[in-house]
Write a protein that binds this DNA or RNA. Structure first.
Lengths: 243, 243
DNA sequence: TTGGTGCACTTGACTGGCCAAGTGGGCTTC
DNA sequence: GAAGCCCACTTGGCCAGTCAAGTGCACCAA
């Protein structure tokens, strides 16, 4: 019994056209072969050709002008499935894979900012799990996760043992739903005394802090992951289309 | 002579299904009517129904499981056409509309960071246009635009007069191509002496700095717009999907 | 020369139909 | 009763063709 997988025809056409654009055979600005030419060359019906071209348009490879044709834009410079984002990385980070040490794991009163993000009353009890992340023996980052006690209850998140998986896995099983999107808040501030000692920076240093609120598909927040980085050693990168 | 515009059938189906999901008629988690049921109800052929459902899936309204059906997720919480982004706002900002004053406009040597972003040699000549932005008489932000002289030449960008349009307009006409996407770099640092005076902050304050590199479709950088904000008075927000 | 007409070519929207593949429940058979 | 098969229903993929709408150029007439 053999399992042969042949991709759908339209996917083959997509791959071939991407190859030709990448190779320079279809340089940016040049017109693509018309739908009928592609039908003839690849032996496909028109809807199949159109479907493939629609995907290429949605991904930014080409632009179409009704009555004129389709024109090459080039390999989309924007990574279509976005790049590494701070919040996503924090959510899926595995404590066993990054070197560092757990600072605390337990119940605290929610600071105003965290309470706002989680949609709960200030000073409500939340579970805070905080770690110092090191690289080559140097402290580089303090990362924290804040959850309502109702979510953290019964999970390993409030325990002092290393987590086997990222925070996301625990939250999703407690939530019974999958996390859908992240809202990030970035700001700069001076360190607290504790952070000075942990990160080994002066009290006048500028810290970059990122709060990432992870929500389900209905927009309900489930967890806030936070990271604090010395600004002189790190920068965040992000890319997005204009308009 | 009358011009009546009737949207395509598939667009009408999209609108109607979005309405039903929004109204709660199709609550989250519930199955949508099958393709054949929708064909019967709306009098459309199957490809038309499938096209509409494909758009709803791409926009995050529904999920599909082959063999089982399509299921409602709810109104996508992620704004599909993204929200206001710092870099985009800077690029399209009109000097006549924001209150502030021009600090400088002319040729300087490119700092290392700017030269790297623009893909030119450090200390190459670039045109720097820098403004102090105020709100209610208080300084809140220093915004700058950096361009290779070849791009700025012949435009109003190097002149001391107020710009009639945003930077983007001038760059696009000089480039002969439209700007396609932005790569943002965010970091935190202490202010320079000059910035202390302009922004009215202490020398130990934490400043949030955003560098936005605007590129065309081929990834070539054309301009860097920069903003410097006191971290205690501003924060950046961004939302994106998980996976 | 200039202006307008018409046609060829392009993409957009839609129809009606086909077969394949995944899912789940009911039925048959052991 | 349990295992396995079959079938109905779902979505995925594909085809052949129609009509509409936008673009540009060749051609023709004033």
């Amino acid at each position: 019994m053999t399992f042969e997988y042949t991709p759908p025809k339209y996917a083959q056409l997509i791959a071939e056209l991407e190859r030709r654009i990448d190779s320079g055979e279809y340089p940016p600005g040049s017109p693509l072969p018309s739908e009928h030419q592609l039908m003839a060359e690849f032996g496909m019906a028109r809807p199949t050709v159109v479907k493939a071209l629609g995907v290429l348009r949605d991904q930014g490879w080409i632009v179409t002008h009704q009555g004129k044709g389709r024109f090459v834009r080039g390999r989309p410079a924007m990574p279509t499935a976005q790049q590494v984002r701070t919040g996503r990385e924090l959510l899926d980070r595995n404590e066993a894979q990054v070197s560092g040490r757990l600072l605390s794991a337990g119940e605290v009163e929610a600071p105003n900012r965290i309470a706002t993000y989680l949609g709960i009353k200030p000073a409500s009890p939340v579970v805070l799990r905080r770690s110092l992340v090191e690289h080559d023996g140097e402290p580089i980052e303090i990362s924290s996760a804040w959850l309502p006690v109702a979510v953290a209850d019964g999970t390993a998140l409030a325990e002092s043992a290393d987590l086997k998986h990222g925070v996301r896995r625990y939250v999703e099983s407690a939530a019974g739903a999958s996390l859908d999107h992240i809202v990030e808040h970035v700001t700069a501030r001076n360190p607290t005394k504790e952070e000075c000692g942990l990160l080994g920076v002066k009290s006048s240093a500028a810290l970059l802090t990122v709060y990432a609120v992870a929500c389900d598909a209905t927009g309900r927040p489930w967890v806030v992951v936070e990271t604090v980085l010395p600004g002189d050693r790190h920068e965040l990168e992000d890319a997005y289309p204009i308009l």
